[in-house]
Design a protein around this nucleic acid. Structure first.
Length: 455
RNA sequence: GGUCCCUUCGUCUAUCGGUUAGGACGCGAGAUUUUCAAUCUUGAAAGACGGGUUCGACUCCCGUAGGGACCGCCA
């Protein structure tokens, strides 16, 4: 059986680095096992899901370089959920409940205050048919709960400890006690379905073989395994990775806009830098920039994924991005450079690539070379002398050496005393690419003007 | 309040009872660049704490501390 995995975000917000970690882990596993990757938009929450977010998610994934040619959305699959729900109702595994949300909330708080677990007491399950009829007569429409199989040996109502276990591809043997959980709500009072249910129905019908998701779903998995079985299906393999925390070790908040993929893209990061970091953080592999997904996939393995929370550090991501760019040749990015208005072709890129953190920095260097800058005159005398010694054009890579030697002879300056004032006057910057490479792009006219800017 | 998970150099981690505790990033130094940045080489740097078990513990057990997840008519 060939591998099928899915990434199932809900279009209630933009993707952030934590989501991408889940996405890339799924994607790499599919790639490595020659399987398929499904993008499933979990949009059953009508209140919060929007088409705009759905579009944003697709854009983010496309930018990252995922092949998202196979997509489904849960809002298109309601008939499937209806059928599965009917099946459960017929088997007496889905029962109507009539408490209001407020009532449930109050009840939970009371239980917590008493130090008791906030578990639903199955009050509606104990209800007589007459009572149900009366409530419905009043116009109350029920919401529906799945009756967890945790009453073996009891009266059928009182839950008993019931362990569900599975062998997690990342965490090893896991168990969840269904006896300590509430019967999950599967259908809202308005008739819409909840994730716990739709996810299982889809996983069954779309033939998902591996569910790779965050550890925040660990308890869901216990419930969902019971659902798979209630629907007569064999559960897929589950793999729960740890969640990401920020550089301070705090939980990654979805509110942090800068960590959205959109935000990362806007700051000029390369997709492969983001992907490399997302795939490698919290694994035993070195965090280094890979140039393509295939190379990341080649070394993917569940047992390399740590159980401890992964630490996401933007500074590290920037570093990764810089290193990726440093070793990127001209051809793959020629178009993007042109789009940024960077000229000079391959020679210019080779001159500056060691000094860029993002591609936009190449534009900054192009502007420094060919635009208007504010020269910094550190040593007016030396700079003035240098101006008079500028060779005639044409200039090439040997010009810098010949010129600085002449300046050295004339002034006696050498080393830092010679080069630092020249760099400051020519570029206005403390650090930068080798001037031997940059000087030809500045050209004699601009160089002369910059050197003479002190007078 | 309950259940579950995690804790090794600054960071991400290797080790699955016996190691000089290894690697990667970052940091320091050297080389190179007649300057800087980039690049290359190299160095420093670690088992949360307290108890056990054992000839021997980073590794197994218990406790403490810290962090995380879940306990929704969210996903």
């Amino acid at each position: 059986m060939s591998t099928i995995v899915r990434f199932a975000p809900s279009p209630t917000g933009r993707l952030h680095i934590g989501n991408i970690r889940t996405a890339v882990l799924n994607y790499l596993f599919a790639l490595k096992s020659d399987g398929r990757f499904l993008l499933r938009l979990d949009d059953t929450d009508r209140e919060r899901s929007t088409e705009e977010f759905a579009e944003g998610i697709r854009r983010d994934l496309a930018w990252l370089g995922f092949d998202i040619s196979w997509q489904v959305r849960q809002s298109d699959r309601i008939a499937r959920y209806d059928a599965a729900a009917d099946k459960l109702k017929a088997a007496g595994l889905l029962y109507p409940c009539y408490e209001s949300e407020d009532e449930l909330e109050r009840r939970r708080k009371r239980q917590m205050a008493r130090g008791a677990p906030p578990i639903y007491d199955r009050a509606s399950l104990r209800m007589s048919a007459e009572e149900r009829a009366r409530l419905e007569g009043e116009g109350r429409s029920p919401y529906w709960r799945f009756r967890l199989p945790n009453t073996e040996g009891s009266d059928g109502i009182v839950p008993l400890p019931t362990l569900v276990s599975w062998n997690d591809a990342i965490r090893g043997d896991q168990t969840v006690d269904l006896g300590s959980l509430s019967d999950p709500v599967l259908i809202r009072a308005d008739g819409s379905y909840l994730y716990t249910f739709t996810s299982v129905v889809d996983d069954i019908e779309l033939g998902i073989t591996h569910v790779i998701r965050g550890g925040d779903h660990l308890t869901n998995t216990g419930v969902q395994i019971a659902l798979f079985e209630a629907l007569g299906a064999v559960p897929p393999v589950f793999a729960h990775h740890s969640l990401l925390v920020d550089a301070q070790g705090q939980a990654l908040s979805k509110r942090l806009g800068a960590l959205s993929i959109e935000g990362l893209r806007e700051t000029g990061l390369e997709p492969m830098a983001v992907l490399s970091h997302a795939a490698l953080v919290g694994t035993s592999d070195a965090i280094e920039a890979h140039s393509d997904l295939a190379s990341l996939a080649a070394q993917f393995s569940f047992d390399k994924i740590s159980l401890a929370p992964g630490r996401f550090d933007v500074a590290e991501l920037n570093q990764l991005n810089a290193r990726l760019l440093h070793r990127t040749g001209y051809a793959p990015i020629a178009q993007r450079l042109a789009a940024l208005g960077v000229g000079g072709g391959e020679a210019f890129w080779d001159a500056v690539r060691g000094n860029v953190e993002t591609l936009a920095d190449a534009r900054a260097w192009w502007d420094i070379a060919t635009g208007t800058i504010s020269p910094v005159i550190e040593d007016a005398g030396l700079v003035a002398t240098a101006a008079t010694l500028l060779p005639a054009e044409p200039w090439d890579e040997t010009t810098w050496g010949a010129w600085t030697n002449a300046v050295k002879q004339a002034t006696g300056a050498k080393g830092r005393a010679l080069f630092h004032p020249l760099r400051l006057a020519l570029t206005g910057r403390e650090a930068g690419p080798e001037l031997k490479h940059l000087l030809p792009f500045i050209g004699r006219e601009r160089a002369l003007a910059r050197l003479k800017s002190s007078v």
